[in-house]
Design a protein around this nucleic acid. Sequence first.
RNA 1: GGAGAGGUGCCAGAGUGGUCGAAUGGGUCUCACUGCUAAUGAGUUGACCUGGGAAACCGGGUCCGAGGGUUCAAAUCCCUCCCUCUCCGCCA
Length: 438
Amino acid sequence: MLDIRVVRDDLDKVKQALATRGVEAAVLDDLMRIDQQARTASTKRDELRAEINSISKEIAKLMRSGEVDSANTLREKSRAVGDELSQWESKASNLEAERRDSLLKIPNVPSEDTPIGESEADNVILRWWSPETGMHSGPEIELPPYSEHQRKPHWEIGGELGILDLERAAKISGSMFPMFRGLGATMERALSYFALDAHSDAFEEIRPPTLVRTATMVSTGHLPKFEEDAYRLERDDLYAIPTAEVPLTSLAKDEILKEEDLPVRLTAYTSCFRREAGSAGRDTRGLLRLHEFDKVEILAYTTPDQAGEMHAELLSRAESLLQRLGLTYRVLDLCTSDLGNSSKRTFDLECYSPGTGLWLEVSSVSWFGDYQARRANIRFRSSETNQIEFVHTLNGSALAWARIWAVIVETYRQSDGSILIPDVLRGYMRNIERIPSK
RNA sequence: GGAGAGGUGCCAGAGUGGUCGAAUGGGUCUCACUGCUAAUGAGUUGACCUGGGAAACCGGGUCCGAGGGUUCAAAUCCCUCCCUCUCCGCCA
């Protein structure tokens, strides 16, 4: 959430910045009105409490010296103040709760570098890479010449080779749940091993819980605004995580870290669960959009000064995996209207799927500033000033496997219908070179 | 799931209604002393909200797992919940 003090002090600037992502100025005016009332009420409440505190001390003194009558007179007085106090207490706590609710729903202020835009069409293509042509900057993309046998969509390939069984997955769980089989399942597993090993030079590997408390979902910004998108286990009041970002961010919840321990780098492989409530009927074929998928996430806590460099590091790690897998991709700088709620700046990586002709989002690398840290209350003590500050959080997918799986089987499909396994995965797949055709 | 014990500051740990933001010990940092290290002595050391101040800082409030309640007054009494530990049951 935003720092209420920054909103107070720089109201116009905040309004202007949030307008670029479609937040109306009235929302902030309301917040300021509530804030003013809340502060008035809590000041009044604190004054009354101070009065009762001092009367109570008086009473204690009188009791000790045996002046019971005077003590009783003061008791009466204190009780009367107490009646007034309870009104202000409830007024103040209602207003404070209202202020917090409002603050929790206001998105982050975009970074100054985030391109301003009104739809995803305004996202900026920064660069693109393919194994044939290497890295190119700018939005003009020349796709490598794909052969006819690479133009088959992955769901057809998967069915044909018996490595993807969406029909039976639907029987078990419903549509938009995947089931990999045989070497298809092995390859999906290999991808995670490959990625976790690739980050092991600098990142601590975590296997977090995938069912989390409400507070954990609030910390990352997934609640209260996006309740509809999450799977909830009502009986136990738990949510299924939509990404490992959720448990990894809350790992340090309510902690004060030492500056010398920063940056903290974490990586985790988990399943991710998404209701996809708003997207019924869109991209429903194959593995394009799923209720459950596996992903390796990389995440960092940094000082504000380290954040920029870390953002670049996370992005380059995600890109490097794609390059090692030999997949054509492009890097998008998301514009203000396409930016995630909690993010200040996000780069998306999209892989080209020759079988469908679509660019598929396979990673999203974001810098959240202190927005999540404020919600999760993650701080650090500066070693120079000894002051306590909020950390910055950053994270990225590296990578989301279902879509990568789809792009691999399409890209690596041979003219005989078999699939060549990317070199970097073979070590994790019993050194098998290809998934044979049927 | 059942029975019991417990959750206090950076850590350990005392505190069963007022003088308790909290003894004591350890750690931290500062100073003194010692040729160095060590030891010793003195001091220091919480977070959050809010008002004032350029700031240092000063005032008020809150916080002893969380939320309610009793009381003039709650770490302390009552209720609910969460968590940890021990035993029993169940179980991959």
